[in-house]
Amino acid sequence: MDEGGPLVNTIGDAWKWLTDAAHWAGDDGIWHRLTQHLVLTVVCLVLSCLIALPVALVLGHLGKGGALAVNISNVGRAVPTFAVLVLLLLTPIGQWGEGPTVVALVLFAVPPLLTNAYVGMRGVDRSVVQAARGMGMTGRQVLWRVELPLAMPLILSGVRIAAVQLVATATIAALAGGGGLGRIITAGFNLASTPQVVAGAVLVAVFALVVEGIFEIGERLAPGRARGRGPTV
């Protein structure tokens, strides 16, 4: 009747693994993996925003391509991240080191960005847009000064969803040989070391929750106007 015993031991061992200074240093060390994860997430978030937001803003402004912008999120959900990572690994992109990871990360971050920004742009009260046009604003001015600020809450919630998605995808990338904190978990599985697997998982979970927390705090600090109406995806 000692069912709690092994579990408590594992947690203790995972803690020991985490607090061992030797596991933080070196190329397979926690610091290096953490940096990789952070760099991958930030770089791919910036790349995805550069790709998705201009497209979404223009489509939303023109009111075109709505079906595409909205459905792309459903498609993104149906396609397994792991499958895309492995498929990319087996294509010539697989030769470029972190190439498959970066491409997969961007592919999975674009849909929520696109959908939320598009829905945000279309959600702007039409009478406000018409009033702006009535005041003599050009299309470009309407986009930058009216629609974009009003759509900002949903655009930002898209960025938040994308960021969390990026952290998760970067973790799975370790299964397909990518860098990042997921490597600690996969290495743990290969060594059949449950403490290492759990320690890696705790690191990943904390990383993801910190990213989510940063956006949460950012939203609270933002002026009331920019506060979210809640994500749509």
Partner: peptide, 15 residues
């Protein structure tokens, strides 16, 4: 929901 799937599975491993 925020915890990545690979980490979630790994956290459940001891159980």
């Amino acid at each position: 929901y925020t915890i990545p799937s690979l980490a979630m599975f790994s956290l459940l491993l001891p159980v």
